[in-house]
Nucleic acid binder design. Structure first.
Lengths: 157, 157
DNA sequence: AACATAATATCAGAGCTTTGATATGAGTGA
DNA sequence: TCACTCATATCAAAGCTCTGATATTATGTT
């Protein structure tokens, strides 16, 4: 057995040591965001809307008339990415796009009535996840987490 | 002007109110992870390796011989996703895959010499980002953030 | 031994995301 | 006016990610 060419593949413990709180901050951030994104996708799945679509719908509800470029800057993604999401939302009849009055090139997006209805359902599902996300953080602890997340999001690319 | 069919598109302030520390925790988490992922991709771009590939290479360096299913569970993604990443890594000559001695179906992955060399370069780049990520957190604050991220990552899907 | 169950791997399709390239429109300056 | 620059939008290709389906291999049950 000792000269078996195939090593026994030591199994990494989950949530301990480098796989837990001792790991790299970036690794932890990625794992947490991945887990949360999947919970959001799961909650929205039967509504036929994806997490990125929900993000765009939410932004358009808060700020009707945003252009694709505006949305891209706000969501920290490229204009090309937003273009794909907007195309899918428009095909689903959830948004409308109208040319800007003065600026001929700009397309202003806004929720359709169907989009508003769907967003109301989606918001309830996603917001129900936030208390779980809050875990057992105390108020000062939550403030620390919020401040850190906001700073990381705003760091220069 | 008041009956202009095109509203003036109020511009959302960046980093304030709902777009800052007062926003939903889930929104903040997504924004922070997106911003960090893009910084990682930027740092790795000229090495020809992506962030997900770096993650898999790192795991295989720490635990040689992991199967695709093992990697999927560790990285919190589906086996199909890992399958795509492994195919690209193998095509690039960065990993090798050998059948398990007993378990005929399992393919054990490990870094090739080229993969080890590339990972060493990539690690230096990515690890250089961690101090920046640490921002100006005090030791107790960092502990709070780490504990929260680890918990969110381990919450049931 | 035969069947059922579970784990592993992969194919197919859809959507998200990036970089790079292209076209259009607005504004500025020679 | 013409050219230059900038912003907006989109196409194309590559990679990541998901759900759903399929094939193969072990294992456990009868």
């Amino acid at each position: 057995m000792s000269d078996n060419p195939v090593p026994p593949a030591p199994f990494p413990p989950v949530g301990e040591g480098k796989r837990g709180t001792e790991g790299y901050l970036g690794y932890l951030l990625r794992q947490a965001a991945t887990a949360y994104r999947q919970r959001v996708e799961k909650a929205l799945a039967d509504l036929g809307v994806t997490a990125p679509q929900f993000t765009v719908l939410t932004m358009l509800h808060a700020y009707p008339g945003l252009s694709g470029a505006d949305l891209a800057r706000t969501a920290l993604v490229t204009p090309q990415t937003v273009s794909v999401i907007l195309a899918n939302l428009e095909r689903a009849g959830l948004i409308t796009r109208t040319p800007h009055a003065q600026h001929g090139r700009i397309l202003m997006a806004a929720l359709s009535p169907a989009g508003e209805r769907l967003l109301a359902l989606a918001r309830a599902r996603v917001h129900a996840l936030d208390p779980v996300l809050k875990d057992d953080l105390s108020a000062p602890e939550e403030a620390v987490v919020r401040r850190w997340l906001a700073r990381v999001a705003q760091m220069p690319g």
